[in-house]
Design a protein around this nucleic acid. Sequence first.
DNA 1: TCTGGGGTCCTAGGACCC
DNA 2: TCTGGGGTCCTAGGACCC
Length: 432
Amino acid sequence: MYALLDGNNFFVSCERVFRPSLKCRPVVVLSNNDGCAIARSEEAKALGIKMGAPYFQIRHLHDQAGLVALSANFTLYGDMSDRMHGLAAGMGPAQEIYSIDECFIGGLDGVRDVTRRARAIRERIHRGIGLPTCVGIATTKTLAKLANHVAKDAERKPGSYPVELAQVCNLAECPPEMQLHVLHQTPVGDVWGVGRRIARRLAELNICTALDLSRMPPAQARDQFSVVLERTVLELRGIPCIPLELEPPPKQQIACTRSFGMPITDLPPLVEAVSHFAQRAAEKLRAQGSRCGSLLVFAHSSPFRTNDPRFSESATVQLLQPSSDTAVLVTAAERGMRKIYRPGYRLAKAGVMLLDLSPQTREQSSLLPDDTTTTGRDQSALMEAMDQINQRWGKGTVSAGSAMKSGDWRMKQERRTPDYTTRLEDLPTARA
DNA sequence: TCTGGGGTCCTAGGACCC
DNA sequence: TCTGGGGTCCTAGGACCC
């Protein structure tokens, strides 16, 4: 038995905790660079704003309908997320943190009164940190996801489902007719693991609802699609195929990529940007205790500006030996960028990806006699000191020389809210 | 003028080996 | 003139997730 708990309109809800005036208003949170809407309040959804809608296309709704648009504040959301997951863990013996706003709880078979317990946890989260959540409970993760949809729909679309299912829906407790009804009401594209493409192909086979999909022969799902879809079919039938992942496996690649605040044509700001990306990526790399064997740098022009000349290049730089040293990675990133750079293009985005990750174990010295790369204890001690300083005093307190964050490649974030929960200066003040 | 970022897994096809 | 079969590894591309 699994439960899935997730925060409703998570980023918007985080913002509303500290600005109650945003309640009952249409609110969106924008992606980096204030590019497009990545979270919407119910009121914003009612205005017809789609997930991913470019901001410039919905900006007029500010005057027309009082839309409030905020820059993403991931520091705030990450901290609220930690608190939410901490409270959610009380629901059962095992927890998988699936994303910033969702977690699965497993091992519920031995837990008495699961539904009531889920309601109590929801209440505790709401009282404790002010976030609204919904919980779906079922025999498999895929069905728990589905139940979670039901809990949400029952709450916000009166009449769609019985009110008892609002906020917390335990599908396993529902009578069989209701279970069938739920599967029948769910479009196949809303099933976890079925995206737009596969939904379209399934529709050609006359498979349009979750119920239809659950009745597809698993072998056919495997032959005509993939083992992934076969698992989904089985999960919809109540046969668990996707286990709980208690500990996140170490990442196999680490990326840092950004769209620029304005188009870049010159080499120096590009080098500065990728140096910065390499530095950030190196921090993430060390945080999970890994080294990387190679690094990929890319840059491209805007795919949306069809009149501009197109540019899209990448270079993979092999390191002499695996490293997690900021200086080594920054140097490699710069080299890659100099290699792919061509003048005359308006570049919109660039990034660095660390590949061939392996665990940071013992020091391994180079076989090459004249390898001048600085290695060994001194360098890793320096990295450790850098990470600690930045952790204690804030990101970017110390940084590699070429990676200073000064240029106009920096992203636009014109409507960012304060770091209410992680910076003393931003602590909200309560007035009597 | 203005369109995000960071991941995973699976599959097909080619290279290579015996 | 005749030209196998089975396996592994790697990569690129597609699909999905939030």
